[in-house]
Simulated assay, not measured.
Amino acid sequence: MNVNAKNDCAKALSSVLADTYVLYLKTHNFHWNVEGPNFRPLHLMFEEQYQDLWASLDVIAERIRALGAYAPGTYAKFAALATIKENQDIPKANGMLSELAKDNESIIATLVEAIQVAQNAGDEPSAGLLIDRQTVHEKAAWMMRSMLV
């Protein structure tokens, strides 16, 4: 893989890393602050999701480094790269579910674009990592949408 292709892959992975970090932070915040009759299942589901997100951050960042680029690692860089936005408010439980479902759909879009970049570059390790993350986010979005019915 040539240098330009590596840089393109690292840039796409950096966007995924930023979305993942913002989603991690939001999910952890909602885990801490969820209330209502579905407190326990939501509290546990959000915990499972933020732990998975946290673990994935290192894998994504290390792939960026393996491509020879520096991984973004500041709030300012994450905010600039992320499509997912922070929420300064604490929504009601269903609002949390709705927002996180939409955020998971947003990160899926970021992942689909990054997968295309990686596949076009012949970067199968990055493509595989990204496809695995897409599967996780598709399941999370489906579960949350199902809980809102």
Score class of each variant (00 low, 15 high):
residue 31 H to A: 03
residue 7 N to W: 01
residue 98 S to Y: 13
residue 90 I to A: 00
residue 80 A to Y: 03
residue 26 K to A: 04
residue 91 P to Y: 09
residue 34 V to W: 13
residue 21 Y to A: 01
residue 106 S to Q: 14
residue 102 K to A: 09
residue 30 F to T: 11
residue 40 R to Q: 07
residue 96 M to N: 01
residue 108 I to A: 15
residue 81 L to H: 06
residue 12 A to C: 09
residue 100 L to D: 06
residue 100 L to E: 09
residue 103 D to K: 11
residue 63 R to A: 11
residue 47 E to P: 03
residue 60 I to G: 13
residue 73 G to A: 04
residue 72 P to H: 08
residue 95 G to K: 15
residue 106 S to L: 09
residue 93 A to M: 13
residue 8 D to E: 14
residue 57 L to H: 14
residue 108 I to R: 15
residue 109 A to Q: 14
residue 110 T to R: 14
residue 72 P to W: 08
residue 86 E to N: 09
residue 43 H to Q: 02
residue 121 A to G: 04
residue 87 N to P: 00
residue 14 S to P: 05
residue 45 M to G: 01
residue 11 K to E: 15
residue 80 A to I: 00
residue 11 K to M: 12
residue 34 V to A: 09
residue 37 P to A: 00
residue 64 I to M: 12
residue 75 Y to P: 05
residue 59 V to A: 03
residue 49 Q to T: 07
residue 50 Y to V: 05
residue 21 Y to M: 03
residue 58 D to H: 11
residue 38 N to A: 10
residue 70 Y to D: 07
residue 111 L to W: 10
residue 70 Y to R: 07
residue 60 I to Q: 12
residue 119 Q to C: 07
residue 83 T to H: 14
residue 31 H to V: 04
residue 99 E to N: 04
residue 58 D to K: 13
residue 92 K to Y: 09
residue 80 A to S: 11
residue 46 F to G: 02
residue 107 I to R: 11
residue 75 Y to T: 12
residue 31 H to W: 04
residue 31 H to M: 03
residue 9 C to S: 10
residue 10 A to V: 08
residue 77 K to D: 11
residue 38 N to L: 15
residue 107 I to A: 00
residue 25 L to G: 11
residue 117 V to E: 10
residue 47 E to D: 15
residue 44 L to Y: 03
residue 17 L to Y: 09
residue 115 I to S: 02
residue 116 Q to W: 00
residue 74 T to A: 01
residue 70 Y to K: 10
residue 115 I to P: 04
residue 37 P to D: 00
residue 75 Y to S: 10
residue 104 N to W: 07
residue 96 M to L: 01
residue 8 D to I: 02
residue 104 N to P: 04
residue 67 L to E: 07
residue 110 T to V: 12
residue 49 Q to N: 08
residue 121 A to Q: 05
residue 100 L to I: 08
residue 57 L to P: 12
residue 31 H to G: 07
residue 45 M to S: 08
residue 65 R to H: 15
residue 15 S to A: 11
residue 85 K to S: 09
residue 48 E to G: 10
residue 120 N to H: 12
residue 7 N to M: 05
residue 99 E to K: 04
residue 67 L to Q: 08
residue 18 A to P: 13
residue 76 A to Q: 10
residue 105 E to R: 15
residue 75 Y to N: 10
residue 71 A to G: 05
residue 27 T to P: 12
residue 54 W to Y: 05
residue 117 V to A: 12
residue 109 A to F: 07
residue 12 A to F: 11
residue 26 K to R: 13
residue 23 L to Q: 08
residue 67 L to W: 10
residue 110 T to G: 13
residue 45 M to T: 06
residue 118 A to I: 03
residue 80 A to D: 12
residue 55 A to V: 01
residue 95 G to S: 14
residue 12 A to K: 10
residue 36 G to H: 02
residue 23 L to P: 02
residue 65 R to P: 07
residue 110 T to W: 15
residue 21 Y to K: 06
residue 52 D to R: 08
residue 10 A to C: 09
residue 88 Q to D: 15
residue 80 A to K: 11
residue 88 Q to R: 15
residue 73 G to P: 05
residue 87 N to G: 01
residue 7 N to F: 02
residue 79 A to I: 08
